[in-house]
Simulated assay, not measured.
Amino acid sequence: MQVIDFIASNGPWAWLVAGLILLALELVVPGGFLLWMGIAGIVTGLVALLQPVGWPGQWLIFGVLSLVSIALWVRWSRARPAKTDRPYLNRRADLFIGQEAVLEMPIVQGYGRVVLGDTVWRVSGPELPVGHRVRIVGNLGAVLAVEPIG
């Protein structure tokens, strides 16, 4: 109840100070949501300065602005892919799609092996003999899907 009494007695200035505190906390505790709550607090303070609003209305403005801005930020940040200098990290099999290889073990009952770089990979595809050239067309986890060439 002390927070409500403080806001009721100090009105817009309490929101402005709270917004600045939330912005400062965002520097210490990164994550993004305190930024939007701080901006919502400052906007709530500015609205209360320009138009007298009771404390329940101020809390409503702050809550709606916080939730909407955080939801929009999360949606926007999830929609854009993270840029990286190593796009195939933790997805090594995707790196080989489109490449050609020679079977080191025949594909029998749907599975065989190829050597790519310094690694032996399990492959799946139609039955083929040792030494046959294959093209990698996809992957199922760590198993490369292949098709025969020629």
Rank of each mutant, 00 (worst) to 15 (best):
A18M: 12
R75K: 14
D5K: 03
P148M: 03
P129S: 05
L22D: 04
A79T: 09
F33H: 05
P87M: 13
V74G: 01
V120C: 01
L20T: 08
I136Y: 00
V43T: 14
W55N: 04
P106T: 06
G41H: 11
V64N: 00
L72F: 13
L65A: 07
V114L: 05
G117R: 05
R75H: 12
L35I: 12
P30S: 10
D118E: 14
E127R: 10
L50D: 02
W59I: 15
I42Y: 03
I42T: 08
L22F: 15
T84C: 07
V29Q: 00
G41M: 03
L49G: 11
V123M: 05
S124Y: 07
R92K: 12
L72Q: 09
G57H: 11
I149T: 13
V3W: 13
M37C: 14
A71T: 12
A18P: 05
S124L: 00
L46S: 11
R92C: 02
A71W: 08
I136L: 04
P52T: 13
I21S: 10
Q2N: 00
R78P: 01
R122Y: 02
R92V: 02
P30K: 10
S69F: 09
F62E: 00
D118G: 10
Q58V: 13
M1C: 04
L128W: 07
T119C: 01
Y111T: 12
F33Q: 07
V120F: 10
P12E: 11
A79S: 15
G19Q: 06
V47D: 01
I97R: 02
L128R: 09
G38L: 05
E104T: 15
L144N: 06
V134P: 02
V17S: 09
A48I: 08
I39H: 04
L144F: 11
V102F: 11
W13V: 15
F96L: 07
A40E: 05
V28S: 05
R113W: 01
V68F: 04
R86I: 05
L67G: 11
D94I: 04
W76M: 12
W121F: 14
L49F: 15
L49Q: 11
F62L: 15
V53S: 08
G141K: 06
R122E: 13
G110P: 02
S9W: 10
Q99H: 11
Q99K: 14
L35W: 04
N139T: 14
F96P: 00
G131F: 09
I61H: 05
